[in-house]
Design a protein around this nucleic acid. Sequence first.
DNA 1: GTGGTCTAGACCACA
DNA 2: GTGGTCTAGACCACG
Lengths: 130, 130, 130, 130
Amino acid sequence: MEFKKPRTIYDQIADHICENILLDRWPAGERIPSVREMAIQAEVNPNTVTRAYTSLQELEIIVNQRGKGYFVAADSREKVRKMKRTEFVQEDLPALVKTMELLGISPDELADMIEMARETRKDFEDETER
Amino acid sequence: MEFKKPRTIYDQIADHICENILLDRWPAGERIPSVREMAIQAEVNPNTVTRAYTSLQELEIIVNQRGKGYFVAADSREKVRKMKRTEFVQEDLPALVKTMELLGISPDELADMIEMARETRKDFEDETER
Amino acid sequence: MEFKKPRTIYDQIADHICENILLDRWPAGERIPSVREMAIQAEVNPNTVTRAYTSLQELEIIVNQRGKGYFVAADSREKVRKMKRTEFVQEDLPALVKTMELLGISPDELADMIEMARETRKDFEDETER
Amino acid sequence: MEFKKPRTIYDQIADHICENILLDRWPAGERIPSVREMAIQAEVNPNTVTRAYTSLQELEIIVNQRGKGYFVAADSREKVRKMKRTEFVQEDLPALVKTMELLGISPDELADMIEMARETRKDFEDETER
DNA sequence: GTGGTCTAGACCACA
DNA sequence: GTGGTCTAGACCACG
């Protein structure tokens, strides 16, 4: 797992979990990796993972069962989808529009760029699957 | 001037300057606010402004004239445009595509959302002009 | 650690690190003193050390591991050697030739002076070893 | 006239004057350019030139005659030669020896490098003379 | 007035 | 513990 700078690591770990929930890899009720497992997997300090899990617990996206581990909460998928969608509309979208204006990228041009990026992405995924 | 958290203040100041260059408010050769002026204007410590200016100087977007201040470099607009466009394609675009996939937003839907955001933005700008 | 005026302190700290790398006291992979340790050792403010370390990191001579410290990069010794050699040929050497001309010092005379300086240096080193 | 960073501008102006004295372009008694002339010639603020002249006056290398200007002092050439030679032996030479050790440059290699630099220098001078 | 450097001391993210 | 960022305030070189 790789991390990018402007976002904190624990936020990125939380994102990663939300991603798995959104993609239905981790359905409601599923046990997610323990703090230690996740720390090893992400090559990160357990403290950092704990922060990520705690924040998701506060959002009621995962729940903790003492001695058993963390589990995906009921309805978590819809909850995450709403949250992320709100975030997207309120933060990412305005930033995108502003960047488009500044760089003179038209909606059509953006559509083309997205199409290209999707293909690149698919190629990449095909490659990694092998 | 307000700052948001995930990005450092000095990066946001640097962005602000690039923005003014892109919008042609500060053409090549123009003197930009002195470190102290910008510090007051942005309600920030002069050191923080210095850091922003220094990074832009290393990118040759602004140049320093001893004892006189910083000036927008020749060709800076094109330089910034290229830089920002590369950044957009390599960083923002992949993130956007990924988010769209995760949230099930189709290109058409995105186009609609952008259209709406642009209008909201215009309304906001009209309002602030009054 | 003592500093001389015409060069900034942070450059001198950076030089000091390069020197240790060149002398193989700090081989590739070795952890260098933490910012705070170096600050105490050099009787300097941590910010100043940070500046030195950051510049060396940009040159890929040292690398940072989050929360652990700075480490000497692989191949750093060769990298430093090349850099310093280029600096010497492009900056120090022309200055030396010019000074020799101005002061009327012939290559032979210079060779003698160097020989003397080396001996003085050895005496000094012997003395400090005791 | 171009200036390099690690040395202050007024020191470099003072050096420039010493250079002309050493090369016998400005013999004892000769009037040197006025502060204003020198400031224009060096594209520098008159204050900076004044500092350079003042420091040389303190060293009794130039003398000021009120209302007439600055003049090269008697014996100035020998005085400068001694000064610069001492500087060279005490500062430049030890630095040179240290750099040679660090970079593994032998006295013979240095001699070759100097020879090459001299030729390059001559070529350059020939070129600029045309 | 300008920027460049440095200090002292603080808070945060992360190990 | 580590480095990264930020503030407050100082001195210097230069215009």
